[in-house]
């Protein structure tokens, strides 16, 4: 872990990758520990962002010539995250209108 201390940390790909891992782990922890649906959604957004950060980092450090596939993928990730948030919130509001609750414990009708 000595990469943190040498010069040019902002030009080192590993620092971005490690950062993405930290964000991703925070996202996983959030998803695993929450009962509140919105809390879970927040974790998913974090994980998606970690992925997008990786795409951009690889696009920057892996190509000598201009190749923007990574940027395009990051844009797709962002757009799909927004789409997912819209659908999730629409479902959430519909559930909340019926159940008056957003906890995953109260939405267990399909559990055997």
């Amino acid at each position: 872990m000595n990469f943190l201390f040498f010069e040019g940390i902002s030009q080192n790909p590993n620092s971005y990758l490690i950062l993405a891992i930290i964000i991703f782990c925070a996202g996983i922890f959030t998803v695993l520990t929450r009962k509140n649906i919105i809390g879970i959604l927040l974790g998913i957004e974090l994980m998606l962002n970690a992925g997008a950060l990786n795409f951009i980092a690889f696009s920057f450090f892996r190509h000598e010539s201009a190749d923007y596939s990574g940027h395009v993928f990051a844009i797709f990730v962002i757009v799909l995250a927004a789409a997912e948030a819209v659908v999730a919130l629409a479902i959430l509001l519909a559930v909340y209108q019926q159940r008056r609750s957003v906890s995953t414990d109260d939405i267990s009708d399909l559990k055997g």
Partner: peptide, 10 residues
């Protein structure tokens, strides 16, 4: 961070 990676549009 994206700006550090030359991705201003993103």
């Amino acid at each position: 961070l994206y700006i550090f990676l030359s991705a201003d549009f993103v």
